[in-house]
Design a protein around this nucleic acid. Structure first.
Lengths: 142, 142
DNA sequence: ATTCTTGCAAAGCATTTGCACCCTG
DNA sequence: CAGGGTGCAAATGCTTTGCAAGAAT
């Protein structure tokens, strides 16, 4: 996907020291393009560098996320949360205080429904759609 | 939110045995209506029944989810996943084989953008929207 | 040389499991 | 009384942390 030279260049551009571990981790994320877990990445890296520790993999991934070079997909540093509601609804994720609020809007549901009928994904059968709205309340409101 | 009688009725309707633990857990989920974690629920339950164990709380929550009486919000049965892409995009969650695929559709982004401009949430500033599309591939396709 | 990065091992959490005992229907 | 539910404690799995040793600029 990217040459070693390009990967080093990317790291340098972000002001990061170039280490074999970082090059290997970033290369792994690019190569394993199917949303790898830290474990997948570790396994891949270990093929070449069998001595890279788990701690380093995690720290490196955190660093790369911080620098905006990669993203976390199903980010969940907090515990699973439960909800008494069972009808379809969406959520407002407030990153400031780590709270979650329900967001219910029939117009949105209808619009998504129509959209995915008109733009169906070949061979894919949708069972539900959950919209995660990330953001925060403006000061003084809420 | 619900009387004890109503909660017991709900449990009975699902064919579950009525135990003080189950009544307490379900009541906790209804009372703590701000997406409680298992820990929040445990703390709440412990105010009345200090001897309910963590294992029971988890097992009870699982049972209630199975019966469709409550839902899990940020369901995390697997590890955090990473992605080499940084541009805004959505995801297809395949529940059958636990895989995640990117879903990129500018039309969808534009539509959501327009929607939330026209239907803005008072006092709330949206930073990003992530659409989780749950479903599966029909047999033989993919 | 200085600062940042790594490896290691221990610790931290959330969650799961195994099993004997206990309670509900 | 039969089948399920519970408590306890140990185990698991992912991730984080502290710190001394090592490498990059």
């Amino acid at each position: 996907m990217y040459t070693e030279k390009e990967i080093k260049e990317k790291l340098r551009n972000k002001g990061l020291k170039i280490t074999p571990q970082r090059v290997a981790v970033l290369n792994a994320v690019y190569t394993l393009n199917n949303h790898p877990t830290a474990q997948h990445i570790m396994d891949f890296v270990h093929k070449k560098y069998s001595n890279v520790s788990a701690g380093t993999i995690y720290k490196t991934l955190d660093t790369l996320v911080e620098k905006g070079m990669i993203t976390k997909v199903r980010t969940t540093h907090d515990a699973t949360r439960y909800d008494g509601r069972t009808e379809n609804h969406h959520h407002l994720y407030n990153n400031e205080n780590n709270s979650i609020e329900d967001y219910i809007n029939k117009k949105l549901d209808l619009m998504l429904d129509v959209f995915f009928k008109e733009n169906s994904i070949p061979g894919y059968e949708i069972s539900s759609i959950d919209v995660h709205i990330n953001g925060k309340y403006q000061k003084g409101v809420e």
